[in-house]
């Protein structure tokens, strides 16, 4: 069976799972459905001959699941039922997205067909990667030698994101004090 059929099957499962994740009421079910989507992506990476990415995606999935469950489970809150105008707006959005999808078909026809990439720069990497860098894993030789700038930027972005999360969560004591003061004032 060619790779393409497997990919079509996995993609259909992923689309169904993502729609289910968005439409389900229960948060735990949504998070599990997102897990299905992520593992489908990981499986597709394996079919597309990218074992590096499959490992990272799989671990990403586990990690995201832990973060989401730990942060959101057991929080009691109420979402208002969508009013009529919201439903109309959602319908308009769906119609617009469907139109975008139909018009984009001709754009995808312009791209090189599936299975035949252009490979202009990559051919050089494939031929000279092992000789230039001494690494057997050519993906590794690209991210850390040919394009190490990218990795430096990636580290910077990660550092900033983590720093942002820290800063946001550290403001707690002050806002909590405000809240207690407010509740005292209300009493």
């Amino acid at each position: 069976m060619p790779v393409e059929y497997w990919l079509i099957f996995i993609l259909i499962v992923m689309i169904i799972a993502s729609i289910a994740a968005l439409e389900m009421k229960d948060i735990l079910s949504s998070i599990v459905a997102i897990g299905v989507v992520g593992l489908g992506v990981s499986l597709s990476f394996l079919f597309l001959q990218a074992p590096d990415l499959a490992i990272v995606q799989f671990l990403f999935e586990i990690f995201a699941l832990i973060i989401l469950v730990k942060a959101f489970l057991g929080k009691d809150y109420h979402i208002e039922e969508p009013s009529r105008i919201n439903k109309i707006l959602a319908g308009v959005t769906v119609i617009t997205l469907a139109a975008i999808f139909i018009f984009s078909v001709s754009v995808f026809e312009l791209l090189p067909p599936f299975g035949e990439p252009l490979m202009t720069t990559s051919q050089y990497y494939l031929e000279n990667g092992a000789k230039d860098t001494g690494a057997a894993n050519l993906v590794s030789s690209i991210i850390l030698d040919y394009r190490a700038y990218d990795t430096l930027g990636e580290i910077t972005v990660l550092f900033t994101a983590i720093l942002g999360a820290f800063t946001i969560l550290r403001i707690k004591s002050k806002s909590k004090k405000d809240k207690t003061e407010l509740s005292h004032a209300a009493k």
């Binding site: 590096d52 990415l53 990403f60 494939l126 991210i143 990795t151 994101a161």
Partner: peptide, 17 residues
Amino acid sequence: DPLPQALVLTSIVIELG
């Protein structure tokens, strides 16, 4: 093609952050 794989590898970790 190894080049998109290298780019996506960094993208996944950034997504996590």
